[in-house]
Amino acid sequence: MGCGNSQEEVPKASAPNLLEKADYSESYIRNKSVINRKLLKVILLGDSGVGKSSLMNQYVHQQFAAEYKATIGADFLTKHVMIDNVPVTMQIWDTAGQERFQSLGVAFYRGADCCALVFDINSEKSFDSVTSWKEAQIQNPHDFCFVLLGNKVDIENQRQVLKIQRVNPLMMSGVQKESSQLVSAKNGTCVVDAFDCLAATTLNRDDLVS
């Protein structure tokens, strides 16, 4: 299973003057790891088939697999990014959308900073369940920063999107609306943007809290 030790080791660099260069390639950030590096645990929740795994893969590997495949249990990938000049290790947890895992989830949400609720903009049903995913899953919602991601904007039929956007503010209290976006895991529309944005929001929120 992927939940082993796939997280890369963080080299203990001694030099604190890390932000001397403007070129923040991932390898650079990883190698120039620092004391104030932040680890951000993001979990993706949502109905089966809305594209959680695809979003993760698109963000981390810039790949989209056309293969139709359900996720076994859970898996995570990491990505090193710079957010507001701070090196951040994003640990993105992809969960199985099967209802069965709702009861198993608790162990898995522990320590999560941010929760991305994913739905399929062409399926109102998947949007309806977002609320239940949010409420049923999260034991202590105040520890989380929620964002909403509407996936599959690449698909033509977008009528339901407008509807959802109208309903959104009413239904999703507690969600960081400014970070919620419509994305496409297939062609990559707004994916990087969305994740960076949710990371920034989470970090800002954490700063405010602390």
Partner: peptide, 28 residues
Amino acid sequence: PSNLAIVFAPTLYRPKEETFQLVMEDAT
């Protein structure tokens, strides 16, 4: 078959005392 198996395995086949870890270990 693999997709169906992923969907049904955790439902039909579970140990007496199920922990998240055990479920993950035996998932494959």
